[in-house]
């Protein structure tokens, strides 16, 4: 797997993401700058990491979605490339039109910095096959605008096509209002493109990849990707 992480002005989670990918693959990901116009040859995964790109001006991810590198990322996705967007990266994916819907201000209006649990709705995707279906894992959320919104027809379509990959849940795996801290529609924490290769999620699985620092709950996601892309190469 040759991953490339895109860094925008205001991105601040690229190093944790690089660490997670290196732990899963043994290879150091390339770091790209938002002004770059092409991906390194052989790139098979693009990651849009978390942070506050462009100071969240206008709307979270709106400026980043228009930056030069995003044209290459869109072309890459159109060719069937794998793209992972976490937190601000998820916001960029919706702003760029690579995933449907939008991320609104948290329903409570509060910035949420806390652990959450997510239930894996599908374990047959490039990102989740090392989990079991229905498995719950812990991740950290740190966002002010994570309230997933789409119109009811789009939500129904996402559900019908099996594109809701992760939902906020209790540690026991129940999707409840209390577990859905940011107020996302239908408890949605992560969705995928129709070909399941573009995934966006608000919480940070890259926070939990080191047994010495808060456990390894997020590791299966990166291991899934590493396995998917190793077998594709």
């Amino acid at each position: 797997m040759q991953a490339a992480i895109v860094v925008f002005p205001g991105t601040n989670r690229e190093r944790d993401m690089a660490l997670a990918l290196r732990r899963a693959t043994g290879r150091k990901p390339a770091m790209l700058w938002h002004r770059d116009t092409e991906l390194p040859a052989g790139t098979d995964l693009v990651v849009l990491p978390g942070g506050f790109s462009y100071g969240d001006y206008l709307r979270c991810g709106a400026m980043a979605a228009q930056s030069p590198i995003m044209r290459a990322v869109k072309d890459f996705a159109a060719r069937g490339g794998h793209v992972l967007g976490v937190c601000n990266g998820f916001q960029m994916l919706t702003e760029a039109g690579l995933l449907p819907g939008a991320l609104l201000r948290n329903a409570t209006l509060r910035f949420l910095s806390m652990d959450c649990h997510m239930r894996v709705e599908r374990a047959d995707t490039p990102y989740t096959h090392r989990f079991r279906r229905g498995q719950v894992f812990r991740a950290t959320m740190a966002h002010g605008d994570g309230n997933y919104f789409a119109d009811p027809a789009t939500l129904d379509e996402l559900e019908a096509e099996g594109r809701v990959i992760l939902r906020y849940a209790t540690p026991a795996g129940e999707v409840t209002e209390a577990a859905n801290r940011n107020g996302s529609a239908r408890g949605i924490a992560g969705i995928a493109s129709a070909n399941l290769r573009v995934l966006g999620l608000m919480p940070h699985p890259e926070n939990q990849v080191d047994p010495a620092i808060d456990g390894t709950d997020g590791m299966p996601l990166f291991e899934s990707l590493a396995e998917t892309l190793a077998s594709a190469a």
């Binding site: 206008l58 709106a62 228009q66 702003e95 449907p100 819907g101 939008a102 609104l104 919104f149 789409a150």
Partner: peptide, 8 residues
């Protein structure tokens, strides 16, 4: 194109 996100 930019100023509004017509989804929301």
């Amino acid at each position: 194109k930019l100023l509004a996100n017509t989804v929301i």
